[in-house]
Amino acid sequence: MSDLRIEGLTVTYGGAKALDNLSIEVKTGEFVALLGANGAGKTTTLRATSGLMRPAAGKVFFGDQDISKLPGHKRTAIGIGHVPEGRQIFPDHSVEENLQLGSFVRRKHRTETAQSVEDMYDLFPRLKERQKQAAGTLSGGEAQMLAIARALMSRPKILMLDEPSLGLAPQLVLELFKYLKRLHAEQGLTILLVEQQARLALQLAQRAYILERGAVKIEGNSKDLINDPRVAEAYLGKAS
């Protein structure tokens, strides 16, 4: 099993509570969206889950294992993939090198990782065209695809994406989200998507949590939430 369970997570940042006793759960095979205005604690949730931040309290479970104390790079090895905010591709490495770095935890299986690179090229054909180019020369959309492909190289059981649509033109966002849908539907990948474009994310995800000031404000099925006025309020305040 590879359910992700976050229980009572509190993260403080220079005295301020970025997360305040936050609990969420993503079951195997689910597509869950994590929504909320900027500063609500979405990115912090992902960073704490992948071990980049030390929580002040709370636990993170992956499957049956309590991974709260596990160092970050080992969390990747057990199947937590993370596409960070702002893509963070390595600009001086070539596209292919970026992908190979993604499979660092599987470096002992050479033929398998070589195959994975090919699989990524099948999934994102535009990356194949640019495989020898420095990743810094990619356009925003291509860079985002590379970031996702790189995270997939570790064969994660769950993929966490942090605002993949940021800075992309609407058409590219649509294309990107189609890929995510395919990954979820065809490969059965569990996905936790952090997104500001709430309406869009709700059309993709099965369930969603809406955060406000570091805690879950609303949770429910996407179908129910998509027309819920409280969602717009979480972003723009109550229209009076």
Partner: peptide
């Protein structure tokens, strides 16, 4: 080279 560029991202790739 990856760590030199960004240690956090390197960690989440399992390095």
């Amino acid at each position: 080279r990856a760590i030199a560029h960004n240690p956090d991202t390197s960690t989440i790739l399992g390095i």
